[in-house]
């Protein structure tokens, strides 16, 4: 085959992917960054307004600030309790106790069903009349227990948190994968030296899965930045705007034809995503080799 033909084939094979990359990623991201500085309804010509949209985000009402506060708290919970639980499950599964495969398989299921359906299911679980939580508490002897979880503050915040708090299977799988990659000899040598089971976990296993945990934190915080269903289908940001988040603001902006404004919120999302990457990379020194 002539070299020129190969080059043409390569170009042809890459063309569809490059088209997707440009149309759905590069151009949109550029559009977001630029039109965030414009007044634009999506149809007429965008008008450059400088930082007006960003000023409006902060000063129009407190929805943006509340969204940021919620994001901060949810990210904190995600990076600690959520990732912590996923990591714990990985370490427990690593012991390969009876039934570990079944547990791993089951843990995956909430990830493969629609998060819209999942949010609806939690809506029902927290229902005061026929939901599991309130009826369970009432059965335990607190006959007068009535909380309208998604309609009261601060209950709504916690109820939304519970829809994702324990479902950290991707963290579990990543950490588990790294645990399996640790050479058996390392453990054998440590045990021969008289290290206890706990010491092996604390001083060998945890440091060696550091990168996996950091990846888990990045993924889980990014998921919080882009969280939508768990709020839109439960409290819809309420009561008031207590449980609002940026994606909900972005959605409102799009359907209300405030596209410039929506894209300023989207810009904040992109910047926050990058910020999280940089912070976690620094904190965990992810570029250093572990062994």
């Amino acid at each position: 085959m002539k070299n020129k033909w190969v080059k043409l084939w390569i170009a042809a094979f890459l063309a569809p992917t490059i088209a997707v990359l440009c149309l759905f990623y590069l151009i949109p991201i550029l559009t977001v960054l630029v039109t965030g500085f414009t007044d634009w309804n999506g149809m007429s010509k965008p008008v450059f307004v400088g930082f007006d949209n960003y000023v409006k985000l902060i000063s129009y009402d407190n929805t943006f600030l509340i969204s940021m506060k919620n994001l901060f708290l949810w990210s904190l919970i995600a990076a600690t309790a959520h990732v912590g639980f996923g990591t714990l499950v990985a370490f427990v599964l690593y012991k390969k106790r009876f039934g570990w495969r079944l547990v791993r398989g089951a843990f995956m299921i909430p990830m493969v069903i629609s998060s819209a359906a999942w949010a609806m299911i939690y809506n029902l679980i927290f229902n005061d009349e026929y939901g599991l939580i309130n009826n369970g508490v009432r059965k335990l002897g607190f006959g007068n227990f009535h909380v309208s979880w998604f309609y009261e503050s601060p209950a709504a915040f916690f109820a939304i948190t519970l829809t994702w708090l324990f479902y950290a299977v991707y963290v579990t799988l990543i950490v588990y994968n790294d645990l399996m990659a640790i050479p058996k000899e390392v453990h054998e040598a440590a045990l021969l030296d008289g290290a206890s089971e706990w010491q092996v976990t604390r001083f060998i296993n945890i440091p060696l899965v550091k990168n996996a945990i950091a990846t888990g934190i990045i993924l889980s915080v990014t998921a919080r930045i882009a969280g939508f269903e768990e709020v839109a289908l439960t409290s819809r940001g309420g009561p008031g705007n207590d449980t609002y988040n940026i994606t909900l603001m972005l959605y409102d902006g799009i359907v209300n034809y405030q596209h410039g404004y929506a894209n300023s919120a989207a810009t904040i999302m992109i910047l926050l995503g990058m910020l999280v990457m940089v912070i976690i990379n620094r904190a965990f020194k992810m570029n250093e080799r572990t062994y």
């Binding site: 991201i29 977001v32 929506a262």
Partner: peptide, 12 residues
């Protein structure tokens, strides 16, 4: 690494 929904308006 770019939050998926941030591209919503341009895709719309």
């Amino acid at each position: 690494l770019v939050p998926g929904y941030s591209r919503a308006q341009p895709i719309f």
